[in-house]
Computed example of a mutant assay.
Amino acid sequence: MPDNARHTARLYRRMHDLAVTVLHERDPSALHGLVLAELLRACDAEVVVFKEGDWRMDAGPMTIATGGGAATALTDERACRQIRTGRPFSDYYATTPGTVPLTAQEIGRALDLRDVRRFAPGRRFAFGIPLPGTHSPVRGYVLLRPDGAFTASDCAYGTRIQPLLHAVDRQWELLSQWHAMRQAPSSSGEVTKEQAPSADAGLTPREAAVLLLLADALTAAAIGRRLGITTRTANKHIERIYRKLGTRDRVSTLNRARIGGLLPY
């Protein structure tokens, strides 16, 4: 195996191991920070921006991380606006079929980096890793560095880790939904004991995500596709949920989960 291929394989294993760890993390706010730090290291980048959530051209959250600090919300509205409107990847992926990771040079958008440099001074090279899905104009990662263009090996790495990044992102969406639902106030305006995050019936974060998808009437096969896992693995998660809730089928499981405050009515 060529040295570049071995290097890419090592980096993939690191991201794979991190993704497995992340899928057991109970705090959704920690998920993306861990991934951003690994992307910075693996791609030798100085800045990485994650376009999170579903956002419009005029609104939506983003997270930025640098090699010397923790991930933080990107609050520079001018910078956010430039990224949302296609500096340099959003409009390209929104209008071009496919989600192959590419550099700004490859898509002919290197000049757009002049605007990006307003929030990342000196960063002349950019690499985009979009996430598969129906998000518009695009959801994913932009990495920047000042010297040395991103290479074919970087693109190969980005392509290989896309399913892992997609799985982490799906988990973040569902876990965030789970926490928001569990912490919603009761009719009295207080968070009940049943709604408190600690009262989770022993479900792992992954099982909580599967439970939410069960409540959406998804089959095991559909849950597998949504989470990027096999139908067999999805069924194993479902079986463990049944066992922990003391139920035998989907209907009784959802009823027990609602009575216990694990799902809304």
Results as ranks from 00 to 15, higher is better:
Trp55Tyr: 13
Asp76Thr: 10
Gly68Cys: 15
Ala37Leu: 05
Val49Pro: 06
Val48Ala: 05
Thr63Pro: 00
Glu46Asp: 12
Thr72Cys: 09
Glu38Phe: 07
Gly67Thr: 13
Gly68Trp: 12
Val49Ser: 01
Ala79Glu: 07
Ala79Pro: 00
Lys51Tyr: 13
Gly68Asp: 15
Asp58Phe: 15
Glu46Lys: 04
Val47Gln: 00
Met62Ile: 01
Ala59Ile: 11
Arg81Glu: 05
Ala45Pro: 07
Ala73Cys: 06
Leu40Gln: 02
Glu77Ala: 14
Gly67Gln: 10
Arg78Val: 12
Glu52Leu: 06
Ala73Gln: 08
Leu39Trp: 00
Asp44Phe: 04
Met57Asn: 08
Cys80Arg: 00
Arg41Trp: 02
Gly60Asp: 11
Val48Phe: 04
Cys80Ser: 05
Pro61Ile: 10
Cys43Arg: 06
Val47Phe: 02
Ala73Trp: 04
Ala73Leu: 11
Ala37Phe: 05
Gly53Leu: 09
Gly69Tyr: 09
Glu38Cys: 03
Asp54Phe: 08
Leu40Asn: 02
Ala59Cys: 14
Pro61Arg: 09
Ala42Lys: 01
Ala37Gln: 10
Asp58Thr: 14
Glu77Ser: 12
Thr75Asp: 06
Gly60Ile: 09
Ala65Ser: 10
Glu38Ser: 07
Arg78Ser: 11
Arg81Tyr: 08
Asp58Val: 13
Thr63Ile: 08
Glu77Gln: 11
Pro61Ser: 15
Leu40Tyr: 02
Ala45Val: 09
Gly69Thr: 15
Ala71Glu: 03
Asp58Gln: 12
Asp44Ile: 03
Arg56Tyr: 11
Glu52His: 07
Cys43Ser: 05
Gly60Phe: 01
Lys51Ser: 14
Asp44Ala: 08
Leu74Glu: 09
Glu52Gln: 14
Val48His: 04
Ala71Met: 01
Trp55Arg: 15
Leu39Met: 05
Glu38Ala: 09
Gly69His: 13
Cys80Tyr: 06
Gly53Cys: 11
Asp44Val: 04
Cys80Asp: 00
Asp54Gly: 15
Cys80Val: 04
Asp54Gln: 14
Phe50Val: 08
Thr66Glu: 13
Leu74Cys: 11
Thr63Phe: 04
Glu52Phe: 07
Met57Cys: 10
Arg41Met: 08
Thr75Asn: 07
Gly69Leu: 11
Ala71Phe: 00
Asp44Lys: 01
Ala45Cys: 10
Arg78Tyr: 00
Glu46Pro: 01
Thr66Met: 14
Gly67Val: 12
Val49Arg: 00
Gly67Leu: 11
Leu39Asp: 08
Cys80Leu: 09
Ala70Asn: 09
Val49Gln: 04
Glu38Arg: 02
Met57Asp: 10
Met57Pro: 09
Ala79Met: 08
Glu77Trp: 07
Gly69Lys: 13
Asp54Val: 12
Ala70Ser: 12
Asp44Trp: 03
Val49His: 02
Arg78Cys: 04
Ala70Cys: 09
Gly69Cys: 14
Met62Lys: 03
Met62Ser: 09
Val48Glu: 02
Ala70His: 10
Thr63Glu: 05
Arg41Gln: 14
Ala59Arg: 13
Leu39Thr: 05
Glu77Tyr: 00
Leu36Ser: 06
Ala70Pro: 13
Glu77Pro: 05
Arg78Leu: 12
Arg41Ala: 15
Met62Leu: 10
Gly53Phe: 02
Arg78Gly: 15
Arg56Asp: 14
Thr75Tyr: 02
Pro61Met: 12
Gly53Tyr: 01
Asp54Ile: 12
Gly67Asp: 07
Asp58Leu: 12
